Amino acid sequence: MALRGKVAIITGSSSGIGAGIAAVFSKEGAKLSLTGRNQKNLEEVVKNCKTKGSADVLINVGDVTNDAFRKTLVEATKKKFGKIDILVNNAGIATMSPLGAAPKELYDKTMAVNVEAPVFLTQLVLPYLVETKGCVVNISTCGTSTIIPNGGIYIMSKAALDTFTRYLAQEMASQGVRVNAVQPGHVPTSIMSGQLNKEESAMMEKSMIKATPIGRTATAEEMGHIVAFLASEKAAFITGECILADGGLTMTTPPIST
């Protein structure tokens, strides 16, 4: 088990990719500190993790855009497990709006969740990662390499996260902390479908599958395996990378349609 004994904070782990990462990490023997805004969903994720492997799971329900909650999360994790080895900044929102007409409130909310929360949570965790020679894995999107209609603010936020990944990796390399990102292709989760009606969601799904050379969407656990690899000693010489995991989607030229 590649992560046996490692302590990992995973944000946004109550559903979607975060839940998939938690499941894989549990199989790999990690001790988990899971957070999200939905307690019922988190409890279901914990049950699933315990059937997969890890019986040592802490949950904290809250909003990672809140300064006080971020501090509570880090302190509770350190208190329970005595150390922190891995931070997975997965929590995110996908907002859809024409860029030229997007309200400031939408911009502020997107940046708060997708940029500010991972940046300032990482700052809190870094001293512990220096102690353990740990790592950060950020969850971005393949959309930074293509065009998603009406996805401008969302893609801007993830492009900022990619830049944060590379710069922090350079800053922390001498202290033994690695920082990488995963850029998933289309994984059917509520983060995008929640922005669309049923018909639009079905059209996007069809468009994504058609545009993806592998010919299907990805699963959350497939993304989890990539994150687990980057967090493990097998990736000890990888830092500052934004790993595309999109089934070849960004090799296609036409923009994704909704």
Rank of each mutant, 00 (worst) to 15 (best):
K79F: 04
Y128T: 06
P127V: 06
Y128S: 13
S97I: 03
I86D: 06
A68R: 12
T144V: 15
Y107R: 08
A102V: 15
T144W: 07
A94Y: 11
A102T: 15
N89Q: 02
T110A: 11
Y154G: 08
I86S: 03
K78H: 12
F81S: 10
P149K: 05
M111N: 10
Q123H: 13
G92P: 01
K31I: 02
P118N: 07
V125H: 06
T122V: 05
P127L: 11
K109F: 09
N66R: 11
E75D: 15
N90S: 03
T72L: 13
N66Y: 04
K50H: 06
R70V: 04
V115S: 10
L121R: 09
D85N: 08
D56K: 07
Y154L: 08
T110M: 07
V137F: 02
M96Q: 14
N48C: 12
L32S: 06
K78N: 09
V130S: 09
C135M: 12
T146G: 13
N41P: 02
F120N: 13
D108C: 05
Y107N: 08
A30G: 05
F81R: 07
T122D: 09
R37H: 05
E43G: 10
C142A: 15
E75H: 10
N41Y: 04
T65F: 01
G151L: 03
A101L: 14
N89D: 02
F69I: 03
T51W: 09
K47A: 14
R70L: 09
T146A: 14
T110D: 11
D85P: 00
I59A: 07
I153H: 01
V88C: 01
K79H: 10
I155P: 00
Y107V: 15
F81N: 07
Y107W: 15
V137A: 10
S33Q: 04
P103E: 13
T72P: 04
T51M: 14
A76I: 06
L87E: 02
T95N: 13
S33P: 02
L87H: 02
M96H: 11
S140L: 08
G53C: 02
S97P: 03
K109E: 15
E131A: 12
S140E: 07
N138D: 11
N38V: 09
K80T: 11
S145V: 05
A101D: 15
M156W: 04
N66C: 14
D56N: 14
L124D: 11
L34F: 03
V119L: 15
E75W: 06
C142G: 09
P98C: 09
K40H: 12
A30P: 02
A102N: 07
I147M: 12
C49L: 02
D63V: 00
G82S: 04
L126P: 04
A91R: 00
E44Y: 08
Y107F: 15
K71F: 07
T35R: 08
K40R: 13
F120C: 08
V137Q: 09
P118I: 04
K71T: 15
D85G: 01
T95Q: 14
A30N: 05
